[in-house]
Simulated assay, not measured.
Amino acid sequence: MSKKSKIITGLGAASTLAAATDFFLCRTLFDQTLNRKKLKKGKQLSLADADLNDEQKTQRHKELLLCKKWIQNVAVDKVSVESEDQVQLVGMIYPSHDHTSHRWVIALHDYACCKEDMRPVARAFHEQGYHVLTPDARAHGESEGSLISLGWNERRDLLRWIDAVLEMDSQAEIVLYGISMGADTILFCPQEKLPAAVRCIIEDGGYTSVYDILSWQMTHYYKMPPFPILDSMGVLVKQKMKFSIRKASALPKMEKALLPTLFLHGEKDVHVPCDMAFSLYDACQSAKDLYIVENSGHRANMYEQPKAYYQKIFRFLDEHMK
């Protein structure tokens, strides 16, 4: 074999190895991030308190004890809807004690959490006279589904839940509340297509886009550059979930925002950097407010400063739900 042939053969082998490595890494990232079965071997494990410090965990424990007593006096109903792609979705309703109330909140949990993790939020809204709906996102909790799209396909499921509320209460005034992936499920919705019954948005820990959050995780956790692995993973996402991770962005939606939106974020959130909150807030063209919770990390805001957190939320709603 000539020297030139050896070089060509070597380059071919190197290219094949690089392509195989890229495929293996993008497939691994896809499975570990977006595949429910691979993520926890088919079992849903809640990570709701995974990033809390000791003081925040203590506060969360207190909240859960209060929830345990509270729920004994609430007529909780389990409900379900079917998604556009025939996935059964399950949720819980906590009806208000004020039977004349038409105020509702749909509270959406974060990635790798479940509807039960939203009980502290449900209790806070319920005590303000709201009916509360807490769904399990697809591929979480009791809901069916195997793939997680980090809010993009889940946004269509949210529309089904809004329709379900309106079937129960045609006069409903709806607040959409979400934490991180739940927040982006809301932010990804084109607001001009939402029913007029949807009045306000409360988002806590949202990210700018699917690509941005995956890119952040690759550099922060895996210490790897996003290109080319994330772009290869994007091809896999397109094949299996029918959307582009680069186009799945909340920023264009914020530029056309119509609904009053409160942006909440932990100052020390290492999973969704605080800069993303400022980007979303700056892009938002509707009535808005921003509250950065000092010394707080991911999913920790309501436990770091619970009194100030809920005061901020309900003052915002009092102003914009008149």
Rank of each mutant, 00 (worst) to 15 (best):
S2Q: 05
K6C: 07
K6M: 14
I7L: 13
I7S: 02
L11Q: 10
A14Q: 14
T16K: 12
L17A: 11
T21V: 14
D22N: 09
F23Q: 04
C26A: 03
R27N: 12
T28Y: 06
T33H: 06
L34W: 08
K40T: 15
K41D: 15
K41Q: 15
A50D: 15
D51H: 15
L52T: 05
E55G: 12
Q59I: 15
E63L: 12
L64A: 09
W70D: 03
W70Y: 10
K78Q: 14
V79F: 03
E82H: 12
S83G: 09
E84S: 12
D85F: 08
V87N: 12
V87G: 07
S96Q: 06
S101P: 02
S101W: 04
H102I: 11
H102N: 06
C113A: 14
C113Y: 08
C114R: 08
C114K: 13
E116N: 09
D117E: 12
Y130P: 04
L133Y: 00
L133T: 07
T134L: 12
P135Y: 13
R138A: 06
A139I: 06
E142G: 08
S143V: 12
S143H: 07
G145I: 07
G145A: 02
S146L: 05
N153A: 10
I162V: 10
L166S: 06
S170E: 15
V175R: 00
Y177N: 01
Y177M: 07
G178H: 03
S180T: 10
M181E: 08
L187Y: 02
F188E: 00
C189R: 03
Q191D: 10
K193S: 15
L194T: 04
C200I: 10
I202R: 04
G205R: 00
G206I: 01
D212V: 02
I213L: 08
S215T: 02
S215R: 06
W216V: 09
W216T: 11
Q217S: 11
M218I: 10
T219N: 12
K223L: 11
K223S: 11
P225D: 10
P225C: 03
I229M: 08
I229W: 01
L230D: 02
L236H: 01
L236K: 06
L236Y: 06
V237E: 02
V237L: 11
K238P: 04
K240E: 09
M241D: 03
F243E: 05
P252F: 07
P252L: 00
M254N: 01
A257P: 00
A257N: 02
A257I: 14
L259P: 08
P260E: 04
P260N: 01
H265V: 07
H265W: 07
H271M: 15
V272W: 03
A277H: 02
S279H: 10
L280P: 01
L280G: 04
L280S: 01
Y281T: 01
Y281F: 12
A283V: 08
C284I: 09
S286D: 07
A287K: 09
Y291L: 07
Y291G: 00
V293M: 07
V293R: 03
E294Q: 09
N295L: 14
N295F: 12
H298A: 05
R299A: 11
R299S: 11
M302L: 14
Q305A: 13
A308Y: 12
Y309A: 03
Q311W: 15
F314G: 02
F316A: 01
